[in-house]
């Protein structure tokens, strides 16, 4: 083998200026949270607890984005069969599972002083937990299968079906029971709250983009390393 750098069959994504972007994102997160906390007065009904919403609502927003990404990339993989779509779906799912878990814990911390209990079987809490379990199942399936082709096809099918199920779960649990406060849209909120929330939405979105991109990069490099060593084992020169 004369040119080892070009011997890997799949193109390895370059880090480029992504590390810079990452550090910028972290700094921006610190700034946006500081801004939101500093500018907002204590809420009339919720008191200081309202400050939890600046990280809770954006985290749950990332959850919805990643679910959409898993759906889109899984469909693309089933359609085109390109490895990169499979790994993008998997990276989105891993980041998504992390943020769903975070959302749940934040929700419980918010719920304890608000409702007096750590957990209530309220519609949004319960459906979020079910969605978390769907993500966990998806990642467990990937962990249990070694062959890339099979892992890709199967997890794509599970990803698509799981995403289709999201609105159905949400509706059924809402019918089953609801006492969560209605979602407040940015228009009906005080402008100081709205600005703080919007800037945090932006910060979390940038963070999710960064994490998914780097996770995907790692997965592609790992795949390339696997294929290179396989090629060597199969009698490269």
């Amino acid at each position: 083998m004369t040119a080892p750098a070009s011997s890997s069959a799949i193109p390895v994504p370059k880090a480029g200026s992504w590390p810079l972007f990452g550090w910028f994102t972290l700094a921006f997160m610190v700034f946006s949270q500081w801004y939101a906390i500093a500018t907002s007065p204590a809420d009339r009904d919720m008191g200081d607890l309202q400050k939890i919403l600046y990280v809770h609502v954006p985290a749950s927003w990332i959850m919805s984005i990643t679910f959409a990404l898993v759906f889109v990339y899984s469909l693309l993989y089933l359609w085109k069969g390109k490895d990169s779509y499979d790994l993008l779906a998997a990276s989105s799912a891993e980041v998504g599972a992390t943020f769903v878990g975070l959302t749940l814990v934040q929700g419980m911390i918010w719920g304890k002083p608000t409702w007096g209990v750590w957990w209530t079987w309220d519609a949004r809490l319960t459906s979020t937990l079910v969605l978390f379990l769907v993500f966990v199942g998806y990642l467990a399936l990937r962990a249990f299968i070694d062959e890339p082709q099979r892992r890709g096809q199967w997890s794509a099918a599970v990803g698509v079906l799981g995403s289709i199920n999201v609105p159905i779960v949400w509706m059924s649990v809402r019918w089953w029971r609801t006492l969560h406060q209605m979602q407040s849209t940015p228009q009906t909120m005080d402008p100081t709250y709205r600005n703080g929330l919007l800037i945090n939405f932006l910060a979390f979105t940038l963070l999710a983009v960064y994490l998914i991109r780097r996770r995907y990069e790692a997965a592609m490099i790992a795949r390339a390393a696997e294929m290179t060593s396989q090629a060597a084992a199969l009698g490269g020169h």
């Binding site: 079910v130 379990l133 966990v136 467990a140 079906l161 199920n165 779960v169 059924s172 649990v173 089953w176």
Partner: peptide, 17 residues
Amino acid sequence: VLLPLLLFPMLVPVLLA
């Protein structure tokens, strides 16, 4: 373990309904 782990969360709407 894999079958119930994948299947049960998906079946939540059916079971509730």
